[in-house]
Write a protein that binds this DNA or RNA. Structure first.
Length: 820
RNA sequence: GCAGGAGUCGCCUAGCCUGGUCAAUGGCGCCAGCCUUAGGAGCUGGUUCCUUAGUGGAUUCGCAGGUUCAAAUCCUGCCUCCUGCACCA
């Protein structure tokens, strides 16, 4: 309507596991899955066809297309495609070959939460329990004994300088195993973990924890010999099942030692060892003047190692304080004087490179896979990653954000933040639908990674569709040419893709790309939205005009104050909603619900109210168009002026995606037209028609169907949706002001009448000739409105009849009022 | 826990960046009146409290403080809610 060519395409993302999941569940005869399809109106017979993933894609594609059309979206369907179309796969292959050439796709080794039964990573949503738990690295300090190593696992390697002893579970069975060429003693459960974490592990034999007690092991860092002691708190399922004891800084160790000293552990007596161990303090923290672990145990009333809850709290307290505020003391050798938070990393890697330490990955909490198997951490080798950690790449992404517009702009901060913390991201999986990595066929490009520059594909997809281009003609050089302007069309042209078509595609791409606006929900900010920025700047680093220009970000649609969810049943399909309320009513209700990133709430009540209101507008147009007379009054100019202001506001709101504010302006247009019709004796035909036409045009983006109907009813040719958008003209602010006075007068009058009762005569005393002139135009209106027999207006300075001296109250904009 | 956002007069929302013109925008709902002697339609007014011939005043913008002549708007702390936290779409 503003004269721009607009490309509004629509495609279908089918990549990933969900579709295959449906197929698999149907094949297994899953009842719930069948019910979902039945509720969608699919017949029992047709459900059979859903065992073919391609059919599922086609089915929903059709359904969604129909929905989009019913909603009145003006989509260019010639360009549609799905992400499992072979031609699209060629595009993704090009994208990834290209990114790899640039060094943005790398191979790396990475810990993941792993289900040994399913033989695959266990994502958050794939878990029976343990949502949010993630891999964490324990440093394994290798304490040496005569013929084997005691690998103690710790999250606080810096405390190795204060180790006084080692803990094992006396009642437990441990195994002796050859790990990376050394003999380790570890818990049985550690064996599988180590195997999955790139260690070579060969089990040699077993031994009881009690066999180790009383023996000495050498601290590889300090060279001190420390004794092995029994403790019940040691968790065999955690890490190696062997723990180093730092009683000064670990409440668990401190209390366990205490338990032993007080001989609370009766079973210990049989070893006949004398405990003469003093905590060794190696971290100085302002909060703790004595032994930190002891202080924390007192503070949280820890009485024995059985007080798990209190111990957790105490441990947390010490860990946090010491991590942030603690400084290592003289005992820490070269790390003396360093803050714990600062030296932790370098200290760990030093220990590893010196051969003092290794590591084992654990989960931050128990995770159970949907298949009911307990998961552990596996280090996956040679996975393909997008190198989002690359500082140059991050810089380009920041530059893109600098130049973008965000609606609302609050989101911008978040984008910078995400770019900051984003690390390398796995971009391929071994299962699901999608595009195979061209250089490594086992891997399929993961779903968030094939949906980031696909918008560029829209610029040429209709050519591919219309000409039935076979995928094998879409070599990388073709996309290099079309998307990047590289190479020579003569040379690239082939039997299946001639030069003419190549040039057309390049031209079309060049004309349309980059995208002016992308719109989606706020939960996509940390992934899709940001990834899309990264990919654009990577593919077109020297062409900022191809980068995303604006993002519109909305909240999550709520329904009647609640999140829509299938399980709760509080959802409605687009099809159902349109049938029940009409497309227009739904559209304008959604536009009216909220703007910005808050969650908009859709209610049936407001939809019905809007439906009635649209009916009313329809009648208003029908009853008033072409009905006025030719005589003009000052009110014509008033209405014209008001409309100019509304047009300019409405346009501004729409341009900055403030839809709710825009709807508010619609209300105002409507109110003003109503006021005008009431205020004037006979409406002027020209201005009334103009106002109604403006109303229809302004309504058109919100409610296209009824707008087109009204447009045709008033005898216009063609579509209102492609008619010219009204342009705001100059407005007469003085008249607007003066008429505002009349409205205020009406308010005052109704007050006065309420208090004084109904009267027959009205006297007004106005302060200026301008007002006198304008109020005079309202005489008939005031009579009609309030039932006065006579209305007389005087300049306050020339009041001829003024029994209560009301003329003195006259102010500019506020006449003195006397009724009798 | 970390990061970002939000809490406004029955409900939903505007305003907050750039303090005063804010008892605070618009809609919905509700109440009264009008019209129509069919209306769930439409129109007009009201919708924190007190007071009043159109006025004046009191108390309000999550809670508690602070800055200022002046705060919904700025600052501090707290509470509550939303979103995301990665191999998942």
């Amino acid at each position: 309507m503003q004269g721009f060519n607009v490309l509004f395409p629509f495609g279908f993302h089918a990549t990933g596991e969900p579709i295959l999941g449906v197929v698999e569940r149907l094949k297994k005869g899953d009842h719930a899955q069948k019910q979902v399809l039945l509720r969608e109106g699919i017949s029992e017979q047709d459900i059979e066809k859903f065992k073919d993933p391609k059919y599922i894609v086609r089915f929903w594609q059709k359904r969604i297309e129909n929905d989009a059309n019913s909603l009145g979206l003006s989509v260019d369907w010639r360009r549609k495609f799905t992400t499992i179309d072979p031609v699209f796969n060629k595009f993704i292959e090009w994208q990834y070959n290209y990114l790899r050439k640039k060094g943005y796709v790398i191979q790396a080794t990475h810990p993941v939460v792993w289900c040994p039964h399913c033989n695959s990573p266990t994502g958050d949503h794939d878990r029976l329990s343990g949502e949010g738990e993630s891999p964490i690295e324990y440093i394994v300090i290798k304490f040496k004994m005569d013929d084997f190593v005691l690998p103690t696992a710790t999250l606080r390697p810096e405390t190795v300088f204060g180790v006084t002893n080692i803990w094992v579970r006396p009642d437990a069975e441990y195994v002796r195993a050859e790990v990376d060429g050394e003999v380790w003693v570890v818990s049985e459960s550690a064996v599988e973990k180590l195997k999955d974490q790139l260690h070579s592990v060969k089990v040699k034999g077993k031994l009881k924890g009690s066999d180790l007690i009383g023996k000495y092991a050498k601290n590889p860092v300090t060279g001190n010999e420390v004794i092995v002691l029994p403790a019940t708190f040691v968790d065999l399922n955690n890490a190696t099942g062997i723990v180093m004891s730092v009683p000064a800084h670990a409440p668990y160790d401190w209390i366990a030692l205490n338990d032993l000293k007080s001989s609370a552990d009766a079973s210990f007596k049989k070893y006949g060892i004398k405990i003469d161990i003093k905590p060794i303090k190696l971290i100085e923290t302002p909060n703790f003047d004595g032994i930190p672990a002891e202080q924390a145990c007192l503070q949280f009333s820890v009485n024995s190692q059985l007080d798990k809850e209190a111990l957790e709290k105490a441990t947390n307290e010490v860990y946090k304080k010491e991590f942030h505020l603690g400084v290592l003391n003289d005992l820490a050798g070269k790390y003396k004087g360093m803050q714990v938070s600062k030296c932790k990393k370098s200290l760990s890697s030093d220990f590893k490179s010196n051969g003092f330490a290794s590591s084992i990955w654990e989960l931050t909490g128990k995770v159970v896979c949907r298949c009911t198997t307990e998961a552990h951490v596996k280090i996956l080798e040679n996975q393909w990653f997008l190198k989002f950690s690359d500082p140059e790449w991050k810089n380009l992404a920041r530059k893109c954000v600098d130049n973008m517009k965000f609606y609302p702009d609050d989101a911008r901060k978040q984008f910078y933040e995400i770019i900051e913390w984003l690390e390398d991201k796995a971009c391929a999986r071994k299962s699901g639908l999608g595009t195979r990595l061209p250089w490594d066929n086992e891997w399929i490009v993961e779903t968030l990674s094939d949906s980031v520059i696909y918008m560029a594909f829209y610029t040429i997809s209709h050519f591919l569709n219309e000409n039935n281009i076979e995928p094998h003609y879409l070599k990388d050089e073709v996309f290099d040419y079309v998307m990047l302007g590289m190479g020579n069309a003569d040379k690239i042209a082939s039997k299946g893709l001639n030069k003419d078509l190549l040039e057309k595609m390049r031209k079309e791409f060049d004309y349309w790309y980059g995208q002016d606006m992308r719109s989606s929900a706020k939960e996509l900010i940390p992934n899709h939205f940001t990834f899309s920025i990264f990919h654009h700047v990577a593919v077109w680093p020297d062409e900022p005009k191809r980068w995303p220009k604006a993002y519109t970000i909305n909240g999550m649609q709520q329904m009647n104050g609640q999140k829509m969810s299938k399980s709760k049943g509080n959802y409605i399909t687009i099809k159902e909603a349109i049938e029940k309320y009409s497309s227009d009513a739904i559209r304008i209700t959604l536009m009216d619900s909220t703007e910005g990133m808050d969650d908009p709430d859709w209610t049936e009540k407001s939809t019905l109210a809007w439906r009635d209101k649209l009916d009313h507008i329809f009648n208003l147009v029908k009853e008033n168009y072409n009905k006025g007379i030719d005589k003009t009054t000052v009110m014509d100019e008033w209405l014209y002026s008001r409309l100019q202001n509304h047009i300019s506001k409405l346009t501004q709101h729409l341009e900055s995606i403030q839809n709710k504010s825009a709807v508010t302006v619609l209300h105002m247009i409507l109110n003003d037209i109503n006021w005008y019709l009431r205020r004037v004796d006979k409406p002027n035909k020209k201005i009334t028609n103009y106002a109604l036409e403006v109303l229809i045009k302004c309504l058109s983006p919100f409610t296209p169907f009824i707008a087109e109907e009204m447009w045709s009813q008033i005898g216009k040719k063609g579509f209102v949706s492609i008619s010219e958008w009204p342009k705001a003209d100059v407005s007469n602010e003085e008249i607007i002001k003066l008429e505002e006075f009349v409205k205020n007068l009406c308010d005052d009058l109704s007050q006065v009448i309420k208090l004084a009762g109904k009267k027959n005569k009205l006297y007004l005393y106005v302060a200026s000739p301008k007002e006198f002139e304008h109020f005079s135009t309202a005489e008939e209106f005031l009579k009609k409105q309030f039932g006065f027999h006579s209305v007389s207006i005087h300049l306050s300075s020339q009041a001829v009849y003024d029994p209560e001296g009301k003329s003195k109250r006259a102010k500019f904009g506020k006449p003195g009022i006397y009724v009798e």
